[in-house]
Amino acid sequence: MLKIENLHARVEGKDILKGLSLTVKPGEVHAIMGPNGAGKSTLGNVLSGREGYEVTAGSVSWNGIDLLALEPEARAAAGVFLAFQYPVEIPGVNNTYFLRAALNAQRKARGEAELDSMQFLKLVREKLKIMQISDELLHRAVNEGFSGGEKKRNEIFQMAVLEPRLAILDETDSGLDIDALKQVAGGVNALRSPERSFLVVTHYQRLLDYIVPDHVHVLAGGRIVESGDKTLAHKLEEHGYAWLAEHGEPAGAQA
């Protein structure tokens, strides 16, 4: 279970998260929506331990451990995965090599046996099938020269191979054509399970037609200002964020 309490975070001297609270139980899918610059990606970065994001107050516990005390690689080994809004190109590092190094590093950190190349290949083949992506991408350098959509699919493919317990998808739907959107959603749905939680950051209600969330939150001004079920996404789509302000007091977090 993920428990975020009163989280305050600062980037480059600027307060971005200002008292964010959120609880995500195992197996749940939470959608996070909110205007540009609200702090959605900041939340993902803080949860995965990016340098430069200073937590000034609050706490994050993940299955009872203090997530904020861990290095990024330890968070990954503990099951946290961030699908980046802007995946990074890494020339010279082969995609398959990278993914195997990542998986084995995580397994090693958890005290599990590492996979040899045959076992890894078998796993990759299985996941490729689920994700419907071409294995040609695997032979290239990480994200190098990938189209916007290919990068996003590669993120989901990595998620499928690494099998995290908490997946944070930061606008994975942006820039995807409608078929790719369905495939990515299909991939996510295939991974839904009672032990796995998802935080799905999106601007578009459309994604939530395919990945149906248990809860929808609005993040604005560094806090959760409204929470509801999937119908909240429809209301936002219809009325925009201005509607929230008129509609009432910003709500505290209630997941």
Binding site: G49, E51, E71, P72, E73, A76, L82, V88, A102, Q106
Partner: peptide
């Protein structure tokens, strides 16, 4: 590249 470094670490690579 700090961004690349974080990307790799976020996937579990020390």
């Amino acid at each position: 590249d700090e961004r690349a470094l974080f990307y790799l670490r976020s996937r579990g690579i020390p």
